[in-house]
Computed example of a mutant assay.
Amino acid sequence: MKRCLFLVVCLLLLAACSKPEEKNVEDSFPLHMEVQKFEAVNQDGEPFTFKNVKGEVWVADFLFTNCDTVCSPMTANMATLQRKLADAGVDAKLVSFSIDPDHDQPKRLKEYAKGVEADFSNWNLLTGYKQPFIESFANKSFMAAAAKLEDSNQFVHSTSFYLVNKDGVVLQKYEGASNPPYNEIINDIKTLEK
């Protein structure tokens, strides 16, 4: 009996002295979706692939330049996020995927982003893929809708900003069209940069 009691006390002491398990900070985020590989061209017509953001924290969204509803405020909000990131000294990439690649050629994307004074040093607007690809990519990688409306030049798409970690995993989404939580996004990026 004394021997059993001694073993129990020893086990309790070992448990108390051992280091608590370190939790992965990314486990606290609600989403864990792997971004599929992609090949595109940016607003300068330069190739841009998944490799360009591998090892970087990035924020993604979906837009199209002919949009007559949410894309203009979303793009303006992404530009605001870009300025706030710079003011906070936070390094992150911004990636906007066009869901109308036939219409949104690089030159058009560049002119569109210039309208919100985009800084292209860390913000790339992408096109150069086929329509079926971007619809599937948005759905599989971001669980986001991206589809052309029948008999229209408009598209249904997500209005979220998506936080992607250095391994290409989507961890969080935020409102992108109205009142984005800029401070939350910046703090989440800082958390991932640690």
Rank of each mutant, 00 (worst) to 15 (best):
D167Y: 09
M143G: 14
D44C: 06
E34R: 15
A79K: 06
T80E: 15
T69G: 13
F62G: 02
D44R: 10
L171K: 07
M74F: 02
N124F: 11
G128A: 06
T65E: 04
K130W: 11
V70H: 11
V57G: 04
Y174S: 03
V164G: 10
F161L: 13
Y112D: 10
A146T: 03
S121H: 10
A88Q: 08
F142C: 01
N179Q: 12
N183E: 15
T69M: 13
A146W: 02
K93C: 08
C4D: 15
S141K: 04
G128E: 04
V70R: 10
F97Y: 09
E39Q: 13
A144P: 02
I189A: 07
F120Q: 01
P181M: 03
E135G: 12
T75E: 10
K166F: 05
A145Y: 12
V169H: 07
D188P: 05
N42M: 09
S18Y: 02
P20M: 01
N52C: 09
C67F: 04
F120M: 07
I189F: 10
V90N: 02
V57F: 08
W58L: 08
A177N: 15
P101G: 00
Y182Q: 02
P101Y: 01
V95A: 08
N187Y: 07
K110V: 09
K140Q: 14
L192V: 02
L13S: 11
E184S: 11
A145E: 14
K19N: 14
W123M: 01
A15P: 08
E175N: 08
H103Q: 10
P101T: 01
A40M: 05
K130I: 12
P20D: 08
C4L: 15
N139C: 12
S98K: 00
A146V: 02
R3C: 14
V53Y: 05
L192E: 08
F6Y: 12
G115K: 13
K148I: 09
F155W: 09
S141W: 10
D151H: 13
C67N: 03
A88K: 10
D104I: 04
W58P: 03
V8H: 03
N153T: 14
S28Y: 11
M78S: 06
E175Q: 13
V35Q: 08
K84R: 11
E39Y: 04
E111S: 14
S160Q: 14
D68Y: 14
C17S: 12
A118Y: 01
S152T: 08
N153R: 12
F133T: 01
E21D: 13
C10D: 02
L94N: 00
A88F: 11
Q131V: 06
P73R: 01
I99C: 08
V57N: 07
E175D: 13
F137N: 03
L13R: 03
F62M: 06
T69E: 12
T127Y: 07
C4M: 15
V156G: 12
D102H: 05
S158R: 01
M74I: 07
Q82T: 05
L11S: 06
D91V: 13
K140S: 14
R108V: 12
E26D: 08
V169Q: 09
P101V: 00
T75H: 05
D27R: 09
V41M: 03
G45E: 05
L5I: 13
A15R: 04
A144L: 08
A144S: 08
